[in-house]
Amino acid sequence: MSTELDLSRRPAKPAETGPVNLSGLSLVKLRERMEEIGIDKKKAKMRANQVSHWMHNFGVTDFDDMTNIAKDMRAKLVENHIIARPDITEHKVSVDGTQKWLSRFGPGIEAESVFIPDVARSGALCVSSQVGCTLSCTFCHTGTQKMVRNLTAQEIVAQVLVARDTLGEWPTPSENRKLTNIVFMGMGEPLYNLDNVVEAIDTISDCEGISIGRRRITVSTAGVAPKIPELGARTNAMLAISLHATNDDLRDEIVPINKKYNLECLFDAIRSYPDLGNSKRVTFEYVMLKDVNDSLAEAVDLIKLLKGLPAKINLIPFNPWPGSPYECSDWDKIETFAEVLNRAGLSAPIRTPRGRDIFAACGQLRSESIKERASDRLKAKIAQNSTAAE
């Protein structure tokens, strides 16, 4: 029996010591920070807006570059603050131009993000919302990594800043951008970290900062049904559903959260998503698994399942990973599956695999982070103290 844990109420990370990193903080938290260092409320809002604009529109990492802030104020900021990116422990570039970063947010805390260039007319950044995952979807490499912790909103935003640094997109361009879309399709289940995802989207979509519109931000869920309407109400982002099966028996097997929220429950929640229509369709992700979910009968069942919903289906050729129990469907079978959906009036593009050679494709993301138990930390501390006493 599988267990899904909602970690949204747990502290994302221990309290920090030393200088406070302002990079990636929301306007609300920046304003709170300004007040904490003695700036009155009226000026704190103005200062927060200024600092955010420099960090998230111009990409600066040095307070001295904030030229419209008085020198004495900059000196005050320097005393207790830094503007820092996470350590990049690995950066790989695929032969097809896809880029992958492994960002280190603390000791043993690493997550992957992937930039996919030239997706239609845009470039999409796939960001992670957790380190590890609790859902154990059988086709997904991330599902083989035990949950370590939620990422904070600041850490989610940091993935966007890292990509912008590499792409050289500072200040935020008004046109001809390389990075135009954000997809929460990396490591983790975003709706089990909803508060931080909401806060991150607020920062990413701020028109005076990173300025990526909410209609260009997509949040994918494996089916945390009760949180779906809340996601729409709080973010107005686009919704994607990691579906992969048309009946409960198969979905129970490959997407175990279905045992808790079955297809009927899931689709009731989807229909409650705010403002669905032709300009705001739900994307259904369907990974093509050879002889598992790729029959013509299942294509027909998918048509029936999506009847009445403004929907788009992304057919995803399975991307293998070490020890994976599946094979990708034959290409002609994928094309036939897509043709059945297209004839029924559904948009069903086949997603071209990107970044397979660097394990950056859909379902391949994973880090080596391992959750450290409190007892292990205590043992290590005792051992360290013993060594120091000798």
Rank of each mutant, 00 (worst) to 15 (best):
L7H: 15
S8Q: 12
P11H: 13
E16T: 08
L22S: 06
L25E: 06
K29F: 11
R31H: 14
R33T: 12
E35G: 07
E36C: 09
K45S: 14
V51W: 07
W54Y: 15
W54T: 04
M55Y: 09
M55S: 04
H56I: 01
T61M: 07
D64A: 15
M66P: 06
T67V: 13
T67A: 12
K76P: 08
I83C: 08
I88D: 00
D96W: 04
K100L: 04
E110G: 06
E112K: 03
G132H: 07
C133F: 09
C133Y: 08
C133R: 01
C133M: 09
C137S: 08
T142I: 09
K146G: 15
M147G: 04
R149W: 10
L151I: 06
A153E: 03
I156C: 09
I156P: 09
V157F: 02
R164D: 05
D165A: 09
E169Q: 11
T172D: 11
E175C: 11
R177Y: 05
T180W: 05
T180C: 10
N181E: 03
M185D: 00
G186F: 01
G186L: 00
G188D: 10
Y192G: 07
V197E: 07
I201Q: 02
D202L: 04
D202M: 05
E208Y: 14
G209I: 02
S211I: 08
R215Q: 12
I217G: 02
S220T: 04
V224N: 01
V224R: 01
L231M: 01
G232Y: 09
N236C: 11
N236T: 13
A237E: 10
A237T: 09
A237L: 04
A240W: 11
T246M: 07
N247W: 05
D248T: 05
V255K: 07
P256N: 11
L266P: 05
L276R: 08
L276Q: 09
S279W: 10
R281Y: 11
F284T: 05
E285Y: 07
L289F: 13
V292W: 04
A297F: 12
V300W: 12
I303N: 01
L305S: 07
L306Y: 02
G308T: 10
P310Y: 10
N314E: 02
I316T: 05
N319S: 15
P325R: 03
E327K: 14
K333M: 14
F337S: 00
E339Q: 12
L341S: 02
L346N: 04
S347P: 10
S347Y: 11
P353M: 00
A360I: 00
A360Q: 02
C362W: 04
G363M: 01
R366E: 11
S369L: 06
K371C: 11
A374K: 15
L378P: 02
A383V: 13
N385Y: 14
